[in-house]
Design a binder for these strands. Structure first.
Lengths: 167, 167
DNA sequence: CCGAAGTGTTTGAACAGGCAAACACCTCGG
DNA sequence: CCGAGGTGTTTGCCTGTTCAAACACTTCGG
């Protein structure tokens, strides 16, 4: 690093906007779901993944990977949701080490009640405010950054740690 | 809500990409700062705000607002940073109720050490991967969403709670 | 000058999430 | 068939965050 290249004014503006956007959007959706469906955004995402899975069930590791959760976070989240009656766990018939998380009927019912409001909220603050072109731009930009993160992660991780998502 | 308008496939793709991007990017930067400068991304942002403020000092409420922190979150964060020696607090001479958070020399030194690496990381995973046009698109899109969130927040909040940032 | 209402900040209690270590089970070479 | 090493999951402990209630000070109407 010779002289650390700073961000240009446009980059800085984009960066600050992005940071604010990401925080506020997350807060907004979390509030909306808490208020209207009594779940957090994180729990909602978990249930949503299960609701579209075949048999409404997924292995814990797979689920953690999709959600970008640490395994321990997932364990605790699933325990909580199990206590609330939305999820059930059973052993993976194919692998004695594995557990499957399965959406219960109550969980499915919650999703069908909560999803319309959530989708409406996302629409309202994001997609209704953006043009069709901007939606495409957003998809491309975020995909690019994700790819770039993936590559950066692999390079950094050569010594030892953080294989996929801090393991 | 007649029949809840679902998301189109492109919208859904954009949304999922965005969600992944936001999570992974935050994780990545947090790891980078923890590893290279022994601070969290949140603490870094706080110190960064102070470092560019006049006299390196800001009132607690103003700082909380800029950072989108709860007031209580800010209180505790500042206490922690004060114990680490990066921040000092003093009474606001203009208002006996208020406190000012001020960056110490140690804090400033930390920032000058940490900033280049952080900026390099942001460049690497975001701006080096995007074209100049995409940076502008990102700035516009995020600004639009922030504005739309602000409006949505005001409308929702008519009954009672959540004035600015859940108060 | 008094007290009510407003604004700025902190505290107490509860909980989510991260890391690292432990545990359980599978798989494969010998 | 045994044990070493891998993979899937959970647990213990600690830190950071939230919500609500308390505190502290200021301001303003009477």
């Amino acid at each position: 690093m010779t002289s650390p290249r700073w961000l240009t004014p446009e980059e800085l503006r984009a960066w600050i906007n992005y940071l604010d956007c990401s925080t506020l959007l997350n807060d907004y959706l979390d509030q909306q779901l808490r208020r209207d469906a009594a779940v957090t955004h994180a729990d909602y995402s978990l249930l949503a993944r299960l609701s579209v899975a075949p048999d409404r069930a997924l292995g814990m590791s797979l689920l953690a990977e999709q959600l970008k959760f640490t395994r321990s976070r997932l364990t605790r989240a699933v325990i909580r949701l199990e206590e609330s009656g939305y999820v059930r766990r059973r052993e993976d018939p194919a692998d004695g080490r594995g557990q499957l998380a399965e959406l219960t009927d109550a969980g499915m019912e919650l999703m069908t009640k909560a999803a319309p409001g959530h989708v409406a909220a996302v629409r309202r603050v994001v997609f209704d405010a953006l043009s069709h072109e901007q939606v495409e731009q957003l998809a491309t930009i975020t995909a690019t950054v994700v790819a770039s993160l993936k590559q950066a992660g692999e390079e950094d991780a050569y010594p030892a740690t953080l294989p996929w998502h801090r393991r």
